[in-house]
Structures are given as structure tokens and as C-alpha cells.
Design a protein around this nucleic acid. Structure first.
Length: 350
DNA sequence: AACAATTCCAACCGCTCTTGT
DNA sequence: CACAAGAGCGGTTGGAATTGT
């Protein structure tokens, strides 16, 4: 649709990256930071001309003839200093399975809960290991239901159609005005109640990354049309152990319908998250506005209460990752919250 | 040892979303 | 509002590595 290609394919390298290309990309990002991926290859070429010998002593031999997109991917999936290489632990396995049952193939969201793991890595791991693992357990990896179970009316446990707001500190998946309908019976192991799921997620994730988790599941039980069973639970919202909701079928018209209002707020916990590392407040790229002085820090991790949706959160402590070597420094950025609802946390570059 | 089959994962592709003009 | 550019995401692929025959 009238879009220019992301790069001039004729003049770019493809395929596996060489060590020299890696080093050039690392050097460039150490000096200039992330972002502006499309202009990076050109800039890297320029930098190589200006600094024939890099600070690290690496001698540039030629420009970085790579598509900006390719540079971004290489950095995010392979070169970033905070990546945790190596095998997935059993805990990570289970967490991925849980998160997949809730979010579907939202690999980037899942990756956001696993420090040091990338969405690509998780996606590959899912396809090569976990799928098989679930199959061997007799569980359908797509629906998370027992393979023996008869499929029902095409309710697929994927992430609900939602609007997603990405701020510097949190991904907030806001349900639409109408409560999101999810088939939790199919999405989750039958024995698991909401409270159980919450507990599991809480403990697993807290253990995994020692930070914020704001999964909140609310069940909204609605009595529609017929007031069946004197159901006085209309609009009830509870965090308490609720009865497992019945599956919501697409054609449940006329029947008592139980809807799940999925309020899912994920406080991004780690700089490993792509959303966090590369999403910047709109103001940051505008050089003119007053807000442009508030810059986006690509390596931030929030702790404390600032990223939770239930606090006013005037303060937050930022743990800054310094580029180069991944050393974690501790600094106190100026943070302010946009309020209980918006959680627009801003901070000054430090 | 040679070849085929399978596994694994880095990289690519095309689409959507966001943002700026 | 329309359009373009930039960035992010999820699905797919190519080929290296490993395993089986």
C-alpha cells in the first residue's frame, strides 16, 4: 500500500551474520543506543568511516550492509547483553504453558514475563519442545484441553480482542466496554480456578523475575434474559475463589451466560521485553514539545508500586541497565505517574 | 563412511499498529 | 483526514547440526 521497502535489497547482505557484522552493530549501539533501525546501517557505515578504529580496537573493514530490520532483530534476539542463553528450566516451561493458555500466541507478551528470553526464542521453544511435551501429556497445545475431550463450539482460547496501551512502564491490556468473553474451561486445566491461576502466576513470576505482576482476573457473572436460579450475582466482581465459569459458547443466546471480564495488566518486568526496550513515549521523538525533555530510557526496570494499577504511584525506583556489558546500575530517576487509571509513568533520562 | 531423515533455531517476510506531517 | 515512515509482531523458512539407517 504505497510503502517503500524497508531497505534496498540489492545492496544488503542476507543470511547469517558474521562476527565482524555483530561487532560493528554492538559498537554502534553502544555508542548511539537503540532505535532508528532503518537509518542504522547508513549511520554505521558513516561511523566506520569516521572512526576507522573503534574504541574497542575493532577495525572496520566495510559498512554494515544490512537492512535496519535485520539489525534490530539481530540485536534483540542475539546480541543484547541481558539475554539469558541456555536451556529453559522446568519453571520456565510451566510458566510458558500457563501464559500461553491465557494469552495464546502472544509471544512478545509471554517473553515479557520471562527475563532474558526473547519472543523468538520462546516461539521456537514452544514449537519444538513444549508442543510435544503437552501432546505427550495428552493436552492439545492450541486449546490446552485434553486431547480426548470432544471439541465444542469453536471457542478458541486466544487473547481477547483488546486495545493495548503500551507505556514506558506497563503494558495494559484493556478489555473492551463489553466484557471479554473467554472460554476458561477450555483455556485452562479443568481443575484450576481463577484464584488458583492467579496464585500460580503470581508465585511463578515473582520467583522468575522478582518484580511486578498484575494479572487480575475478575469473573463477571451475568444473568441474561431469564432470571434463572434467583441469580443475584449480576455484575459481581470477585477475586475470591469463584466457581469455575462455564464455557461461553458463541451462540449462547437466551441461556444464562457467564462472562469473564479479563482485566489483564502486565507490568513489564525486565529490559528483556521488546516492548519496553523499544517503545518510547511519543513525545520523546519530538524535539519541540516540552515533554521531549523527558526521554525514553531503553533499559529501565521499575520496582516498587509505581507500575501497579491500583496505586497513585508518585515515585518509582528505576534500575538502569547500562549499555555495554549489561552492568546494572542503580539510580533514582524522576518518575511521575499519570494517575491511577493511565499509569503513564515518565522519567528523565539518567 | 555415506547418505537420509529429523531437529532446531536464526533470520526473513509480510502484515498491523503507531506516530508524525 | 490521508498518507508515509518507522517499529513491532507472529508465522514461516533455510540451512546447519544431529541422529538414524
Amino acid at each position: 500500500m504505497g510503502r517503500s521497502p524497508c531497505c534496498e535489497k540489492a545492496h544488503t547482505n542476507k543470511g547469517a551474520w558474521t562476527k565482524e557484522e555483530d561487532q560493528r552493530l554492538i559498537d554502534y549501539i553502544r555508542t548511539h543506543g537503540e532505535g532508528c533501525w532503518r537509518s542504522l546501517p547508513k549511520s554505521a557505515v558513516l561511523a566506520s568511516c569516521l572512526n576507522f578504529f573503534s574504541p574497542s580496537g575493532f577495525r572496520f573493514s566495510a559498512g554494515l550492509l544490512r537492512c535496519g530490520k535485520s539489525c534490530r532483530l539481530r540485536w534483540i534476539n542475539y546480541l543484547r547483553p541481558d539475554l539469558k542463553r541456555g536451556n529453559f528450566s522446568e519453571e520456565e516451561d510451566e510458566l510458558i504453558i500457563k501464559l500461553h493458555s491465557l494469552l495464546g500466541n502472544k509471544w512478545s507478551l509471554i517473553a515479557g514475563r520471562l527475563p532474558g528470553r526473547t519472543d523468538n526464542e520462546i516461539k521456537n521453544y514452544w514449537n519444538t519442545h513444549i508442543k510435544r511435551k503437552l501432546m505427550s501429556r495428552g493436552i492439545d497445545p492450541q486449546t490446552h484441553r485434553s486431547l480426548n475431550e470432544k471439541p465444542t463450539s469453536a471457542v478458541v482460547p486466544v487473547a481477547p480482542a483488546t486495545t493495548t496501551t503500551v507505556t514506558a512502564a506497563a503494558v495494559t491490556v484493556t478489555p473492551p466496554a463489553k466484557p471479554t468473553q473467554l472460554d476458561f474451561k477450555s483455556a485452562l486445566a479443568p481443575a484450576q480456578s481463577m484464584a488458583e491461576i492467579n496464585r500460580l502466576l503470581q508465585s511463578n513470576t515473582m520467583k522468575a523475575n522478582n518484580s511486578i505482576l498484575d494479572f487480575k482476573f475478575q469473573t463477571v457473572v451475568k444473568a441474561e434474559s431469564v432470571e434463572e436460579n434467583n441469580c443475584s450475582t449480576s455484575g459481581m466482581t470477585t477475586d475470591e475463589e469463584p466457581p469455575l465459569p462455564r464455557p461461553v459458547s458463541a451462540d449462547a443466546g437466551g441461556e444464562r451466560r457467564e462472562e469473564l471480564n479479563l482485566e489483564l495488566t502486565i507490568g513489564l518486568a525486565t529490559p528483556s521485553s521488546r516492548s519496553l526496550t523499544t517503545t518510547r513515549p511519543s513525545s520523546a521523538s519530538s524535539g519541540n514539545s516540552a515533554e521531549s525533555k523527558l526521554q525514553f530510557h531503553p533499559y529501565l526496570q521499575f520496582s516498587g508500586t509505581a507500575a501497579t494499577p491500583t496505586t497513585t504511584a508518585a515515585e518509582a525506583v528505576c534500575l538502569c541497565w547500562q549499555l555495554g556489558g549489561g552492568a546494572r546500575g542503580n539510580c533514582h530517576c524522576q518518575c511521575s505517574s499519570g494517575g491511577r487509571q493511565q499509569q503513564q509513568i515518565r522519567y528523565q533520562y539518567c
